[in-house]
Amino acid sequence: MPILKNNMEEKKVRNIINGTVIDHIKPNCAMKVLSILKDIDQECLIVCINTDSKKYGRKDVIKIENKFLQENEYNELALISPEATISMIKDGKITSKEKVKTPTHIKGIGKCKNPRCITNCQDIETEFDVENGDKIILRCVYCESTNEYKN
């Protein structure tokens, strides 16, 4: 049945023939998701914000035409929206569908909360090791301070 359900949703925002569909994004978080996706500024994007979701009430959806996101490109999304799913569409068919997994390492996302951290005084990308327990803990690669991740 998932194909039918997906087809119904496709009516709201047009189908793509080839590309990636990021579904079940937390409502109003699509822009945040776009801000962490790399190398998409040349792509054709379809963004739907606050659409109905049977499972969660409301959700956002992003479709990226003719680009197939790699796992290392989309797993960072788990920090924004852990329920998001990633589907690959090839010739109009869903060839794979997966839930995002929390990455073990992130780069260029978030700020270290330690005011004395070097990342807060030089123009460089932040980097964190992600510890995924009861809470998600981001350990700064530079100053090693731990930042509890809050959505």
């Binding site: 004395r116 070097i118 460089i124 530079y142 100053c143 090693e144």
Partner: peptide
């Protein structure tokens, strides 16, 4: 030595000779 934590670690990314950390903030 730097008052900023993680400064020596950052320096190693640009450097081809050895670096010794003589203190980076409270780290």
């Amino acid at each position: 030595r730097s008052p900023f934590e993680g400064a020596s670690m950052l320096a190693t990314k640009y450097c081809s000779i050895p670096i010794i950390n003589a203190g980076d903030g409270g780290h």
